[in-house]
Design a protein around this nucleic acid. Structure first.
Lengths: 150, 150
DNA sequence: ATACTTGCAAATGATTTGCCAGTGT
DNA sequence: ACACTGGCAAATCATTTGCAAGTAT
């Protein structure tokens, strides 16, 4: 049996309620820890590390297990913004990421940019790329300018 | 004075020699371990893990230290092809990498493809991208076909 | 002779896992 | 009640680092 929720978890507007419905629809329980993880991700302004999500209230191991479970049902995914710990966010919050190898800052990509880039990547390589798991890595505008001035 | 070993491919020998010259030019010593690391990378048909380079002949810690030193003088760099251990290769061997998130295989990119993609990325985002440290991640042609047939 | 390097081992940091008590349904 | 979960601790994996002995120059 499939339970269809009102909205897609595709925008920042994906409410905690909708996410919890999805969890239930997959036959999973809504435990306190699971709810806390979801609340943290809903409130976050950027992808969070497991450590940030645990934040003294939850066991790190439980957080990782929950994130894995939530990834398996598609409501959460993680991104590697550089060499640091992986970061988790609600699915659909961004179209992709770009990280500067010089200053380390990361920026979300808008859908149009990703669409344009994906078309060229596909034409040039045959790959249908995604920049939500590994970002586009390079020099950001600021750091590119710096280098050209040096 | 140069001693040429019979049977060794001239290109590989020339490359190793040039690499060793670069090491010396930076005031670094050419120790046995350092030479073994370089030889392994020259002979490799694909990027190697530190573990593969160590291969029972060298200490893993020394391999990592050597790779770090060789990266600092620009003759080596590493790439993250998925969640596994980092892989090291000689600088300039490839223009970039693409990794399939479905089958896990990685493919080197040719310079023209990278140039075309970089132009679009720069136009759409302002970033000057590089795909030698983090690959383009997506579905390869085979796995994209599979999905479309499913 | 004098640094630079190595091997060995212990330390880190991130993530995973075994176990058993606790709790959501 | 019963299976799913949580907390705690130990285990992995990849990589880094302290240190005393070894060696390239």
């Amino acid at each position: 049996m499939t339970v269809r929720t009102a909205g897609r978890p595709a925008t920042a507007a994906a409410t905690l309620h909708a996410l919890i419905n999805t969890v239930r629809a997959h036959g999973l329980r809504v435990s306190t820890a699971r709810r806390v993880v979801l609340e943290a991700l809903v409130a976050a302004q950027r992808p969070l590390t497991a450590d940030e999500i645990a934040a003294a209230r939850l066991d790190l191991g439980s957080v990782y297990r929950n994130l894995e479970t939530l990834e398996s049902i598609g409501v959460v995914h993680h991104v590697h913004l550089g060499h640091a710990a992986g970061r988790y966010e609600l699915t659909g919050r961004t179209a992709g990421w770009a990280t500067c190898q010089a200053c380390g800052r990361s920026t979300p990509l808008d859908a149009e940019a990703v669409t344009a880039i994906a078309a060229v990547v596909r034409a040039a390589t045959g790959f249908a790329p995604s920049f939500t798991h590994f970002p586009i890595v390079g020099r950001c505008p600021d750091c590119t300018l710096e280098r050209s001035l040096a």
